[in-house]
Nucleic acid binder design. Sequence first.
RNA 1: CGGGACAUAGUACAGCUUGGUAGUACGCUUGCUUCGGGAGCAAGAGGUCGCGAGUUCGAAUCUCGCUGUUCCGACCA
Length: 478
Amino acid sequence: MAQLKNNAITSRDEDFAQWYTDVCKKAELMNYSSVKGFINYLPYGYAIWEEIQNYLNKRFKAEGAENVYLPMVIPESMFAKEKEHVEGFAPECLVATYGGGKKLEDPLIIRPTSEILFSDLYKNILNSHRDLPKMFNQWCSVVRWEKTTRPFLRGSEFLWQEGHCLFETEEQARHNVETFLDIYDDCGRNVLAIPFVKGRKTEHEKFAGAVATYSIEALMHDGKALQSGTSHYLGTGFAKAYGIQYLGRNNKLEVPHQTSWGVSTRLIGAVIMVHGDDNGLVLPPYVAPTQVVIVPIRQKEPGVLEACEDLKNALLEQGIRVKLDKDDSKTPGWKFAEYEMKGIPLRIEVGPRDLANGQVTLVERLNGEKSLVTLDYIKENIPAVLKDIHVAMYNKAKEHLEHSIKDVENVEELNAAIADGGYARMAFCGEAECELKIKEITGGGTARCIYKDIEEGGKPCPVCGKPSTIIAYFAKAY
RNA sequence: CGGGACAUAGUACAGCUUGGUAGUACGCUUGCUUCGGGAGCAAGAGGUCGCGAGUUCGAAUCUCGCUGUUCCGACCA
């Protein structure tokens, strides 16, 4: 383990991976549980997840999705029906084989995802075209027996939401896939201050059992991509395998078109790796569990705490998430460092010196800027300041993303671009074989998603020479 | 799943080579003084040295096995 002072973290540019782990631990987002590959989500980390949930739940419900909760286990016999799906997930399933001290005749698979259980549910409740569309979502955790785990990025168990919908027509289903991908994109733009590239996945990268997968892909500070959300058009494959049917407008049995979409606690990892710096976490204001922290200085002096409480109440009334730290066993300096580690967007320092002039000190986490402002200014302008910070963070991340994108035409250029970090756009035939070769040549570069389809007359694929059919974003990914 | 590193108090580490009383710093508790960038003094609490075998009169230290964490690959949200 790297040599660290007790409360210091590894420099971001010196060792990004270690920096990431340090931030997760020192900002008290998580710690390691005693179960291999499983983490404890600590209050501060979980609170970030709750902010994401709050935003998404509102958006989902506005689209007509309803929250449900289904069993966490799937009988093995039921699992086996959709062939591609099984092949994709079977290797990473955790299976319970004993119950009540007896060996189970039909072992229970801990859900790695719930397409099957939703299909089973829909089979039973769908009768008529009048029941459609059906849009169910569930917030839950899933288990995948990962070989390598990292906090929030890849865990044996992670928290997510999975929406599962049924539609009469392919068109409606495909529209739903787009709608929810856009909601995820909005969540990045409006809440996480993270810009994405988004698009369809290549055949090689798509979800096991899907007709088409779409994803949003973020760019981390170290130049690697992170798949941050997916939306799948499942076609009728699951419906057929699991016997979902309804009586259509024509009085004939029809098979519905299915979709599923999800984001996970991986988004927390994205926030850390997009915005964090050498002082720790930097949280975008709208996902920060605490947006403003008030630190009193010499709080026993008359008037200091009163002024703090007054400010706090004024901010609370405006719906701002504010914390007043009255713990006088910690010095202001300690608190400054602590709240910077935790990435709280704004800090207000309230001490007798400034207060005598009717002022307080306002400090921005993002750029460290300190300014002396009046109490009235605080009471009136914090929402605007938070918004400015959000915009600045989004723009900074967007500049990083856009600056990284390079258009390349052959494998040599692709290799160089990927070695530089960030995304490279290149036309190719879109076949899995070529993608695998590209991965080999570039030492791990994969097609993240498709930028554009080429209708006709594509240049020869740089790998196999067949006509190119797509232009894809390539990058190394987490 | 392969390759490397690591495992000693809540945290970060020393001690191991050459076996013989469990250490340091920070944190924690109590009290006082402090408070505008990780405070000072004083007195305390806190450990079956990851687990299991073996060698030995005696193991944190030597040997073997296991487990976990971490980094780099392969595989996947």
